[in-house]
Design a protein around this nucleic acid. Structure first.
Lengths: 190, 190
DNA sequence: TGTACATCAGTGAACGCGCGTTCACTGATGTAC
DNA sequence: TGTACATCAGTGAACGCGCGTTCACTGATGTAC
């Protein structure tokens, strides 16, 4: 039963968004193609009408995730001073809500340690994602020359990603909340 | 061919150390038991004479890794002022050498995002590892009341782990070196 | 605008492969006397 | 201390299972006239 071009494009989007969610939820290696396709309401056989391989899906769904993430970050700052916009991003990134909903949060924190072993195409997507993340923060740092602002923004991304990874690792909720708070404070008063 | 008690204990140590290395190198999900046993010079059938399951091995090898890591950190500070000891730990943790040798570096940075999905026993080991890491840094922070020193130490661990994750993700060596340096500077001048 | 045919999105079964785990077997080690 | 037997570390083959990928098939969609 061939589908129309519009429906085909919609299916592709659906697979992409479902994969982005499933990978952040359960990890890339631990998420099978059948799992993604079933979660999208399809059978796994049709996968290869849309993507060349699992690696292709990983790369493209990550690109999608980064685009949405940075769009949201940019949008969260409109009408605010640089400082307020920065605080809004940091407080949102390191919030308990983001910690508990890996499936719609930052892929660097959700998949960080396994992305190192991804293929070249995915590594490129991730590298450029890190660069974009730094740029977004740098633009919100005033009263500092560009070079120093970039260095500070880079370190802030380190603390954001690491703080979220640790908050999710720890099995005590109180400790986890403290990690989020301590890391937020450290970033914002530096 | 039964082995002596001494040999048996040695084999167990060998498997534990080999696993600790392989898991940090290739990830837990992506490392099979046969791979670990072969790397230790054994056949995979004998695995269950030493461990109950893969999860058991993961949990015990992580415990081992943390013990060695923190022992080294403590040792690196003897005969130094608190401040120098702290700087030594931070500079060593975020060095290019540690970045390039995942197999003998910190498991939080090497396995961070996939440990979230580990079993309870492993989660306990990891949680207590995070706590010990914070304690080690806190002891090296002077001129701050205990509560604030702990908060600062917690945020420092976030930045250390996140900085190393990012430095390993990025596919440009110069950018990676900058991430390490910017994160080190941020932590030490905060 | 209508008809005839080619295209192809999605299904469901199958493939080879590596996984974690089990097991019969071996022979040196450990134990009981 | 020496002998007889039980134990068990390690081997290598086998298990059921889920993985990524392929393929024959279907019928609605798209294209050519």
């Amino acid at each position: 039963m061939r589908k129309s071009r519009k429906e085909t494009a919609e299916t592709r989007e659906l697979i992409l968004n479902t994969a982005a969610r499933e990978y952040r939820q359960n990890g890339i290696a631990e998420t099978g193609l059948a799992e993604v396709m079933n979660a999208a309401g399809l059978t796994h056989g049709g996968f290869y009408r849309h993507f060349e391989s699992k690696e292709d899906l990983v790369s493209q769904s990550l690109q999608r995730t980064f685009d949405q993430l940075f769009e949201g970050m940019d949008a969260s700052g409109v009408g605010k001073t640089a400082n307020d916009a920065l605080a809004a991003i940091v407080n949102h990134y390191l919030s308990p809500g983001q910690r508990d909903h890996f499936e719609r949060a930052c892929p660097l924190a959700a998949l960080g340690s396994e992305l190192r072993r991804a293929d070249d195409s995915t590594r490129d997507v991730v590298s450029s994602g890190v660069g974009q993340f730094v740029s977004i923060l740098r633009k919100r740092i005033d009263r500092l020359p560009p070079r120093q602002a970039k260095a500070k923004a880079t370190a802030m991304v380190s603390a954001l990603v690491g703080g979220m990874v640790l908050a999710r690792l720890v099995n005590d909720r109180t400790v986890s909340n403290s990690i989020l708070k301590d890391t937020r404070d450290f970033i914002l008063q530096a």
